[in-house]
Amino acid sequence: MSFFIEVVAGGLLAGVMYSLVALGFVLIYKASGVFNFAQGSLVFFAALTFVSLTERGWNLWLALGVTLLAMVVVGILIERTVLRPLVNQPPITLLMATIGLTFVLEGASQLMWGSQPHGLELGIPDVPIEWLSQQWNINISQFDLFAAFVAGLLVAVLALFFQKTRIGRALRAVADDHQAALAVGIPLQHIWAIVWAVAGFVALVAGVMWGVRNGVQYALTFTALKALPVLILGGFESIAGAIVGGLIIGAGEKLAEVYLGPFVGGGIESWFAYVIALLFLLVRPEGLFGEKIIDRV
């Protein structure tokens, strides 16, 4: 039993990491209807910039601040140069543009900082929590718990930002209806720039967390692929969906790996998440928390 709990808890905590990446997708999709495939590259870019700065002997917080600034600038630049000229194009064109963006971002970050892998340390050890393993014989990593806490904090901050601030309310208005938002005088393009900046911030958080976990290397860009099943499961428009979806995918994936993997030869984590998401989608085609699709002729 304790093994089962350990697997589920480990899965849930891994799922939180997926949610962190998925959050960035959701923010941009909600506000501008762009499926931002470049989120994974943004994560990579942020993590690489941060780790390179710290390795050059910068103070941790200073490096964090500078990286955040860089992410905001990158976000605004992307909105200016890529998405503004593509307004009103079909979603597939926008998707392709963001895939093109991944090439640019990955090339730029490796050109700037080199392509060798880095380790990242935040001072939180990746070891099991002692009293849990002694008392209940359950191994849960201290760092995973910290990551979950950060994710929770991030969601809380985002929720506050969206609910309480003026900009947040404008963001929600834009997400609901672009034209109505324009009509009441919300500057659409400022809002999009802000959303991209916020997505850059989320990418930084996700990048640092994933960087500590797996090291900062090119493979970090694949985190986006990990986040995709989470997205279709939770629904593209829902922050809550990104969290719940991440938890379901994380737990399901771990359980399948442990209990199903040995029968089919292992390595199923590359596609099993998609199977879970597809099963959910067959029941609810718009994801768990996505906006209901109404067909009109």
Partner: peptide, 15 residues
């Protein structure tokens, strides 16, 4: 890396 950047940039430009 430079080639990747130019390639991506050109795709965006084309779109």
């Amino acid at each position: 890396n430079a080639e990747a950047m130019i390639f991506g940039g050109l795709i965006i430009f084309f779109l």
